[in-house]
Write a protein that binds this DNA or RNA. Sequence first.
RNA 1: GCCCAGGUGGCGAAACAGGCAAACGCGCGACACUUAAAAUGUCGUCCUGCGGAUGCAGGUUGUGGGUUCGACUCCCACCCUGGGCACCA
Length: 834
Amino acid sequence: MAQRYDPQGIEQKWQARWEADRLYHAPDFDPQPKFYFLTMYPYPSGDLHIGHWYAMSPSDAAARFRRMQGYNVMFPIGFDAFGLPAENAAIQHGIHPYTWTMDNIEGMRRQLRSMGAMWDWEREVVTCDPDYYTWNQWFFLKMYERGLAYRALAPVDWCPQDNTTLAREQVVGENRVCERCGTPVIKKNLKQWFLKITAYADELLDFSRIDWPERVQVLQANWIGKSVGVEFALPVKGHAGKSFAVFTTRPDTAYGMTFAVLAPEHPLVDELTAPDRQHEVEAYKYKAARASDIERLSTEKDRDGVFIGAYAVNPLNDEPVPIFVADYVLLTYGTGAIQGVPAHDQRDFEFARKYGLPIRVVVAPPGWRGEELTQAYLAEGTMVNSGPSDGLPSPQGWQRIADEMERRGFGRQKVNYRLHDWLISRQRYWGTPIPIVYCKTCGTVPVPHADLPVLLPMDAEFRPTGESPLRYHDGFRKVRCPQCGGEDAERETDTMDTFIDSSWYQYRYLSPHDGERPFDPQAGRYWLPVDQYTGGIEHAVMHLLYTRFWTKVMRDLGLVDFAEPMVRLYNQGIVLGPDGQRMSKSRGNVVDPDEQVRQYGTDTVRGYLMFMRPWDEGGPWDPKGIEGVHRWLHRVWTVVTEPAPAAGRAAGEAATEREVRHRAHATIKRVTEDLEQFRFNTAIAALMEFTNFLQGVKATGGQGVKAMAGQEVKGTPAASGKVWDEAVQALLLMLAPLVPHIAEELWTQTGRPYSIHQQAWPKYDAGLARAEMVTLVIQVNGKVRDRVQVRADISEADAKRLALESEKVGKFLDGRPVAEVIVVPGRLVNVVVR
RNA sequence: GCCCAGGUGGCGAAACAGGCAAACGCGCGACACUUAAAAUGUCGUCCUGCGGAUGCAGGUUGUGGGUUCGACUCCCACCCUGGGCACCA
């Protein structure tokens, strides 16, 4: 009678039905509490790989679980549709990026649907749609109006492979390669658009209002790199009125300066270099420039530099110190110049050693008697050789010297950040046009809001020249000035970094078709902020920092009344190939989810991804491991569809029923707690145990159960239909978020009303969840010597008595007197002898 | 070098407000069903020793110490693996 479990058949059937019934559409404004569950949207590369499944199917399970718990859950999906691969495909294969992207999206929609997730497709967002990117332009103009978007000439990172500039965040690794293609980047001086993320640097360091992994917080804090110090001016001897600023976090060591260093690219270098030093300085600059372009791989690089033949004056004590250029000083950090304090900075120490410069101790280590240092002393100490600060502990000296510099007018306390403003210009076609016009008479003119969107022309010509098609598209580039109407204005031809799209997409899901504003504020008041966000850790200092910045700007624009876009964040791990290596086509260890679905069905693939390891750890794909999950689902099918064990009032039945109910409630408790914490692997393990248990009840008619429960077995008992049904019902409800298709199929097959996905999550009875009988462990001196079955509520005195009466305990006492007996109620007794 | 995460059976792992180490799954072995195989089911499976084992004893959570009646869990030192940062003044 019972038909076989046929995953593919039932999965397609239910997916179609659910979508037709709009089962997962999250209505705005529902009396139920809302829950906005968001998973990072995919880039439409054209193929949904197992990594997408790993990111998405557990989060779908978690979202479904929330829904069953009574929340009105929004679980949207969209596509991060702008970006380089589309354009590269256009150049290589002559397909228009739009066509390439849309075809891919079409294919991926189909693949995504095969996952059986509860996405609300009515809210879908596609970022290359003008309806979307017009709001990128709108935001850009708002930022421009507030001075948060500006254009500046700056040394920027350029990827020669992708032919575009990159944000600092997109340059990675020791040898500074492009985050996308791995090509070493080069520096170029270009006029580019920036967003002033540094204006929010301090606020971005405040994580007190969000529940994000420590790891991400540390990554972001490191990236922002706040340092508190002093910037002060060093006059140059013999150059009246000339001075340069240095930044230091150690003003307490300023009296120990015995030289000063300028970055080789520092603008004053040429001016200050003495004629007789010019040749050598030029040579060094050339070498330094090459070194930054070509590999700087040599790990322990020699710290070298060149004296420029000029002297700076330490304003604290009017001592002249020689000025060097050295490439260990970076133009891009601080002021591009430093005080050289070899006694208290290891780099300066090595430099001073090499060039025979004096090393003057100004912060004395404890017990220091004036001996020479063998390395820089970095810790706190007592101020010496520091004029009026002598004798102070160095932290106080820090403040005193900082104050003195301010009072005497040559320095000020300053906070420096490693974070730079966000470079958003990209010299590429497939992105949001920057809505700016350059006019010969008016200069830089923003496109009026009424003229948005600035459409990306579809008739672009793709040439392999490395130049953006927009630059030679006259119809796009040549434009009337919106301000004076002048004829010879030109549009900005750069487009925006695609991280702009993802900085605010979570808001667009609220009202994806709103033509009036980026999102409907009324819906926003209901849905926002995002309650749970999930995605990969690789976006920690890019997307996740940008979207926090963007939300703070939105707050200042009055669009939202909170400062953080996502309350909770969870980073899932990465699925590796069966060989434990990162999946890649060249290794041939790629697991194709479509193929797995064909072989085992969606539920098995989902189930295995959740079962194999903790979600945040990822790990190798085990082709045999997935079969275990598949077998389990078959077992579930059999247990539920085959006839229930005979009902009846045979002797001993009550004990079986109690055990069945206890197991059901204990499982509900475990699974509920596990799912609340995204511990899918142990949730599924608990459900497997429960399934095996029910199967055992069937097989033995209850006798096995009683044996398990420590009861005497007699007669031929079984669970009654009612208790059995309750257990099966609980099992199916708990399966619903994890393996939604088989759960729905069995739910309706057993005569329950469609849809299981509209049912409430089962509640457990704490009393039933607690076991009646427990194994009391009896130890002697911490070693297990005996185990006895006792009632869970056994008294301490009884437990103690049982332990002391135990024969096995007696044997191990060896006649020694009992010194102490420790009782952990309901768990363990430890008899201590000495 | 610094910061973070982690080291538990043949494998993926579980247990940590300190209390039965190895749940669940894979693999392996035996058995049942079968003409046979697959599928399925049942039982067994951390290691060592005790001629035999539903028995007894000992050992075991990277290494070495410590705290404790009791440590995978807490503390100290060290080793290894993975990830991040790395001249940031």
